[in-house]
Design a protein around this nucleic acid. Structure first.
Lengths: 203, 203
DNA sequence: GTCTATACAGCGATAGAC
DNA sequence: GTCTATCGCTGTATAGAC
């Protein structure tokens, strides 16, 4: 029951969101227009305004859907019941999947444009990262308790490191489409949370 | 002799670059206009076109100056002759300083907008990260040789982790202005390159 | 729910006077 | 080196017919 569109979205609004989401993740909020979305769907800009009265409302809907899907993915990771390191790998895989579609994280993109966003969108982006961060903190704390993770300082600091590290690696590797480079950087990032340097000196 | 403007820049062009740089780092390339820059300097848009014929040329000049300053800062770090860990802390400090001005890294911002940039700017951004990455690789390799750093895998992967990690942490903490949070995340990031968990369990 | 038509502001850019 | 004036295009948004 997570696969169906939910009652808030008609088939058309979902198609609009799909196109707008791809454009936003590729070009940023200030880098696409109603004309771009309408053009791909072969409808007019006016028709778009019927579904989403303004670009701000469209943007808020995009954030809401993205955050919902992301939260569902995190819930799936929790439900899998893996140990903390594997759970973190699953978290990193979420980013890898987005990057594989040649996209930047939607909220990472909006973080860059933050100061130009309407207030409602700013709130949505902030909430996304707050949610992601608190989920990560819980996983990190659990791992440290279980002894499967080792790091010093507050879990919130390491959570910020993981979240920021993945967003930033995504930001940079997307330019060249180097998904393997992203994977490697993400692996190095998570390696710093376990025992470190327990692998072969130079693979 | 690094403090003076260099002969390519008149006083006016430098003032233009100063304003445009701040706007770009705050709002992104697609988030500011010639009118914004001209307005702050109390000149007209036409006068701006005299100094920089188009926004693309202005953008390229901004990248060139930023990259030049950044390279000079890296050269200073090399000249200090510190051990690798301290050199990396100096590298992270460069980011902290930018964040302290409530700005995002200029090239990190442009990385988000990469697909919407004119080709000349794309080349500049790519070159910036390539240069930063190779400098980091050299420091990492040196630290591993000297025994002051410990990490497995290729230095290029850890370089991508450090660079991406700082860019991403910057991207996210800038929204709330949490410079202390950035510092902590950066410290955790670099801690993963040394022996790890050699600090007090919970500071 | 989609269309045509239109309004209106903002954009980057150019011409030509001073 | 800066100005006024203007062009052409694109942006978001609205009114009203179908």
């Amino acid at each position: 029951m997570r696969t169906e569109p939910a009652r808030r979205g008609s088939a058309t609004t979902e198609r609009i969101l799909d196109v707008a989401e791809r454009l936003l993740q590729a070009r940023g909020y200030n880098g696409f227009s109603y004309a771009d979305v309408a053009g791909e769907l072969d409808i007019t800009r006016a028709a778009l305004h019927y579904h989403y009265p303004g670009k701000a409302e469209l943007g808020e809907a995009l954030i809401a859907r993205y955050a919902e899907r992301f939260a569902a993915a995190l819930a799936d990771l929790d439900a899998a019941g893996s140990e903390a390191p594997a759970t973190l790998e699953g978290y990193a895989d979420l980013y890898t999947q987005v990057l594989g579609q040649q996209r930047m994280c939607l909220c990472g993109m909006l973080a860059a444009e933050y100061l130009t966003l309407p207030p409602g969108m700013q709130r949505g982006v902030t909430a996304f990262f707050a949610g992601s961060s608190s989920w990560l903190q819980a996983v990190l704390d659990r791992g440290r308790r279980e002894g499967t993770l080792a790091f010093s300082g507050a879990a919130s600091d390491s959570a910020a490191m993981v979240m920021g590290g993945l967003e930033g690696a995504m930001l940079i590797t997307r330019m060249s489409g180097d998904v393997q480079g992203f994977r490697a950087a993400a692996a190095r990032l998570l390696a710093g949370l376990t025992t470190t340097a327990d692998e072969a000196p130079a693979a």
